[in-house]
């Protein structure tokens, strides 16, 4: 609670900021506890009545604890004529709750919404931000099953364009993966960088297709960054330059054969991959392959560390 309010220092004493504070509280607890609302009232100096009025006015806020997964079924006009009420009923039957309620095990909350803005693809169901379109009654149990299993996990597994790559330095052959620091739930690729007079670390997602990265510096867009191997401290630099912005491309070797090149300019999302062999996506035998594939659907015929 303390931290929530501290982060909202700038909203204090400003009645317009209450919504932002409540949003943070809702995000943190999943609902608006009575005690927290009282604290917000005391800290901001506005009355509990006003805060309660806001909390009950907006549908985003909930005064009752919500489940881990929030299922929103669209009942807008377009979805309604395409049998969305039947889908609500099916969810109610399977979860044994009414719309607006939470299951006893606090796993699911079911709510109906009035429009999600994707009318052409209705009926729409949104679970934790994942959209399901053209939903019919039979799909309801599948959606619940997928949600129980974990929606994000399924996305990475199913989407063959996204897969983890294991990288190593072009000079010293040391692995660049840092198993102690995860990005996108996979070991991150650790590199040393320098730009201007600054020198520090940068960690990239090892998922091919993900642009997530973290660094101890806030690197300004358009800066060309020099990359170094954290083991041999040699600069990673290749002969080629980025086809779209002409900055040097940074090469890294893929375990199992192949080369990944990323553009060294901050903000340029050019990257390319040259595979020789070894990655399941390109393998003709990937469906019949008898190798054990670790969780996440790994992708190398040799062991993934």
């Amino acid at each position: 609670m303390e931290s929530t309010l501290k982060a909202d220092e700038k909203y204090r004493k400003n009645p317009d900021g209450i919504i932002s504070i409540l949003e943070n509280v809702q995000r943190k607890y999943g609902y608006l506890p009575k005690k927290v609302l009282e604290t917000v009232a005391n800290e901001t100096g506005s009355s509990l009545v006003d805060i309660y009025g806001i909390a009950t006015f907006y549908k985003y806020f909930s005064l009752k604890p919500r489940g881990e997964h929030l299922i929103s079924v669209c009942l807008g006009t377009a979805c309604h004529v395409r049998q969305a009420p039947l889908i609500v009923k099916e969810f109610e039957n399977q979860l044994k709750i009414r719309a607006g309620e939470t299951t006893v095990d606090k796993q699911f909350s079911l709510e109906t919404v009035n429009c999600l803005g994707a009318c052409a693809r209705g009926p729409i169901v949104v679970v934790d931000g994942h959209y399901f379109s053209n939903v019919n009654k039979a799909q309801v149990s599948q959606i619940l099953k997928k949600t129980r299993y974990g929606l994000d996990r399924i996305d990475i597994k199913k989407d063959e364009r996204i897969f983890p790559v294991k990288l190593r330095c072009t000079n010293c052959n040391h692995s660049l993966l840092d198993p102690n620091y995860l990005i996108d739930d996979y070991p991150s690729v650790r590199l040393t960088i320098s730009f201007g007079r600054k020198h520090g670390w940068l960690r990239l997602s090892s998922l091919w297709g993900s642009y997530n990265n973290e660094s101890e510096y806030d690197i300004p867009v358009d800066t060309i960054v020099n990359f170094f191997c954290p083991h041999c401290h040699d600069e990673l630099i290749g002969a080629s330059s980025c086809p779209s912005c002409n900055a040097p491309m940074i090469p890294m070797i893929i375990y199992g054969g192949g080369l990944v090149q990323i553009c060294s300019r901050r903000g340029c999302k050019n990257h390319m991959i040259d595979l020789i062999n070894g990655i399941c996506v390109n393998c003709e035998n990937r469906h019949t392959c008898s190798f054990i594939k670790p969780e996440g659907g790994v992708w190398y015929c040799e062991e993934y560390i």
Binding site: S47, V49, G53, F57
Partner: peptide
């Protein structure tokens, strides 16, 4: 006092 106010929508 501000004891009562509007609630809901």
């Amino acid at each position: 006092a501000k004891a009562i106010g509007f609630r809901g929508r």
